[in-house]
Amino acid sequence: MSSAPATLVGTPSARRTPSRRRSAIGWTAARTAAVAIGALFLMAPFVIMVTTSFEPNTALLPNPPHFLPQNPTIANYVDAWTGSDFAQYFVNSAYVSVLTTLAAVAISAMTAFAFARFDFPGKNVVYAVLLAGLMIPGIVIIVPQFILAKSLGMLDSLNGLVFFYTAGQIAFTTFMLRAFFERVPTELDEAMTVDGAGTWRKFVRLYLPLARPALATAAVFAFLGAWDEYVWALTVISDASKRTLPLGIAAFQGEHSTAWGLVFAASTIAVIPVVAVYIAGQRHLIAGITAGAVK
């Protein structure tokens, strides 16, 4: 899926002499080998997690961990899925994460556009306050936030989660998108002004398309952030039917012993959608590259 458009991007091969092409092949092989070795290191803990999830459920984690399952079984997956309302948690998480991603990226893109594109009085002060929001750890403001959520009637509510997750992503996503919007060439902007385009039109027709790789990246992170969030969900969600996946997984961790097989199976299931979203985002990353190459 990625290889077709990707080939458009590379250095045009027509200019290469045969000897340069041969060295290019050697270079690609070396690169691939380096990347493969790095991937092995990065994958190891994940492989252990998946392996253990296919072993008979144990209260104690195997030490040293196994790279290949012993007595493989899918019992943990069956138990994790059927033992609790896991399907419900999954749906809840998907609902919250998709809405959060859409809202956070749309709202942050507009905010980032304002900061990247315009000079206006008070800009730097407001931006500094926004950045300060990134530096104060969430755990410190969780009590005032909880009181606020209660007065807004957002306890035990999935839409309440969406509201706070979206708000929580804005500072970061704005920070990230601003850097990308600032790289849009001024000449392109001016050319559209000459053509009589208004600000909104420029935002939609010029800035958003050019920032597609950045928007895709922001969406991937926003989704992951909402999908993985635990502490806020724990604090505001009590009703079991409103639980998200991280709450469901944490429930397998007992006070004195943890059913690691279940935790690992549930964690493995939980990884799948985030990876799917990332793969979907890949297409846009590549599309962004080709769009840039046209210039």
Binding site: F146, A149, K150, L234, S238, A250, Q253
Partner: peptide, 25 residues
């Protein structure tokens, strides 16, 4: 009776926050 399971390591945090917000069980 609505029962709410909270992981034991997080029970204290949830209780304290709920105390501040007047949302205890």
């Amino acid at each position: 009776v609505h029962d709410v399971q909270v992981p034991s390591s997080d029970m204290h945090q949830k209780l304290i926050t709920a105390t501040a917000g007047g949302a205890l069980p």
